[in-house]
């Protein structure tokens, strides 16, 4: 398999958020600022890469009938590790992301890649797939967070370029839906022309 293609598909062609529309719950809920989106994206990416690697390594050791519980235990362990590390070393981010960190366990992308890709492919392919998909997810969340933060708070990554309040609705939940919808529309248009 062409590894470059394997890696780059997560960005545009099979982007987990914009094309596959997977894991929308954290996508819509935590992207009220660019830094939150980036943090969530990187946390998910870490879990995705680790679980992909481990699962592809032990795929032959797991009997078919118990593969889903096994996957979930592995994913949940990595999520808990992320949670503990984040609570210890990035408490502000941990507080902002709140319940959505433990909820990475049920993020469809992670289990979806484990079941649909890593349990069938080699270690290297799974690692690269995890990296590509994870980066695509992090990229999408950061973009969404940046647009929402810019419109809703007049700042990007906390750097304020408008004094006072901006269009508040964008950092609230309806804004997430509106921005996500228009980003998908833009991407579709971009994909059509290229």
């Amino acid at each position: 398999m062409n590894q470059w293609k394997n890696f780059s598909k997560g960005f545009i062609k099979d982007n987990p958020v914009f094309v596959l529309l997977l894991g929308l719950c954290p996508t819509l809920a935590v992207t009220s600022s660019a830094i939150n989106g980036l943090g969530m994206g990187l946390a998910t990416m870490f879990v995705l890469v680790c679980s992909n690697m481990v699962i592809s390594l032990i795929k032959n050791l797991i009997p078919d009938k118990v593969r889903i519980p096994s996957f979930i235990v592995i994913i949940a362990s990595f999520v808990t590790i992320v949670e503990l590390i984040m609570e210890g070393f990035a408490p502000a981010l941990f507080e902002a992301l709140g319940i959505f960190i433990p909820l990475i366990v049920v993020n469809c992308i992670v289990l979806g890649r484990a079941e649909g890709f890593a349990s069938k492919q080699s270690f290297i392919s799974s690692l690269i797939d995890g990296l590509g998909m994870g980066l695509g997810f992090a990229f999408a969340l950061t973009l969404l967070g940046a647009v929402r933060e810019a419109l809703g708070n007049g700042s990007i990554f906390g750097y304020k370029f408008i004094e006072g309040d901006a269009i508040l609705v964008f950092i609230l939940s309806p804004g997430a839906f509106i921005v996500l919808g228009y980003l998908i529309a833009l991407l579709n248009r971009f994909k059509k022309t290229t």
Binding site: L168, V169, L172
Partner: peptide, 8 residues
């Protein structure tokens, strides 16, 4: 409604 939520 957009304005009401954005510019309360």
């Amino acid at each position: 409604v957009f304005l009401l939520i954005s510019f309360p």
